[in-house]
Write a protein that binds this DNA or RNA. Structure first.
Length: 271
DNA sequence: AAAAGCCCCTGGATGC
DNA sequence: TGCATCCAGGGGCTTT
């Protein structure tokens, strides 16, 4: 579910409120994608200094380490002063001096992992091969083009892979390619410098707007204050199979790429 | 080295 | 109503 905008919106919605808090107690429910690699008790007493994001990972900086949180497909966080009793799908919880951070994740593709710091092998295994941050100044159009140049796979799948640029998931990959006028099946290496530059700009535009709109809520996403997002209403192609293109009226088409659905306009995206 | 497939898991929507 | 099937916002791992 959560792509970069949803993760960033989540981060913004609780980072300031949890900063400075001391962890009173941590508890795990059912196992997530990876087991928490330390006893939950070991986190007690530590302080949360800040919350950062790298790709789709949330990084909780602690005074004695780093907690990496991934929301997988169906995860969402909440941060509340007085939360209700844990539900069936609440699988991780940090009780702190400033509120309770809780991870709800029905499918349990999410994860919470502890590392000593960012260069710890545990962290590097997850973060080491991530590509450029699309909303950072370091996301350079020329570097982006160079990254695409050595990949022959379809551009949609190169975007999803996250080793050239991070954070673009299944919704935003379709949206970004529509905005850039690029067919999702085009081999990444076949994009000219100007077309790669156009895609580079589309990624920045779409992700920025999606963050401003509070992310996309397809079924159950909400930020840490329980608020849904609205970007799905702005989607030009995602989940619009058969509906008229908002630009040219041609029916939006769908196809499967790497076991995932892709949506595109055959008219607006013709190369 | 890169690409393609598989799989982890639960739940909602759809079809018979 | 019940049951089977398909699909869903991710991504690491294994196989080609």
């Amino acid at each position: 579910m959560p792509e970069l905008p949803e993760v960033e919106v989540t981060r913004i919605s609780f980072a300031d409120r949890i900063a400075g808090a001391q962890i009173v107690e941590a508890r795990m429910g059912k196992p997530l994608r990876w087991p928490l690699n330390c006893p939950p008790n070991a986190l007690a007493g530590m302080h949360v200094l800040a919350v950062r994001r790298r790709g789709k990972y949330l990084l909780l900086d602690l005074d004695q380490g780093l907690l990496l949180v991934h929301l997988g497909m169906s995860g969402s966080l909440s941060f509340m002063l007085e939360p209700p009793a844990p539900g069936k799908h609440d699988h991780f919880e940090l009780r702190t001096s400033q509120g309770v951070l809780r991870l709800n994740d029905p499918r349990r593709f999410g994860a919470v992992v502890f590392a000593a710091n960012e260069v710890d092998p545990v962290a590097q295994r997850l973060l080491g091969k991530l590509g450029m941050e699309p909303l950072d100044d370091g996301f350079d159009a020329k570097l982006f083009h160079q990254g695409l140049a050595r990949r022959k796979a379809p551009i949609k799948q190169v975007l999803l892979a996250g080793d050239v640029v991070v954070g673009v998931g299944n919704i935003y990959a379709s949206e970004v390619l529509f905005l850039a006028g690029i067919r999702p099946s085009t081999p990444a290496s076949r994009l000219s410098r100007p077309r790669a530059a156009r895609l580079h700009q589309a990624i920045r535009d779409v992700l920025t707007r999606a963050v401003e709109r509070g992310g996309s809520t397809l079924r159950d996403f909400s930020n840490a204050q329980g608020e849904a997002g609205h970007f799905q209403l702005d989607a030009m192609v995602y989940a619009r199979d058969g509906l008229p293109c908002k630009v040219c009226n041609a029916p939006i088409r769908t196809m499967r790429q790497g076991q995932r659905s892709t949506f595109f306009c055959g008219q607006c995206q013709n190369a």
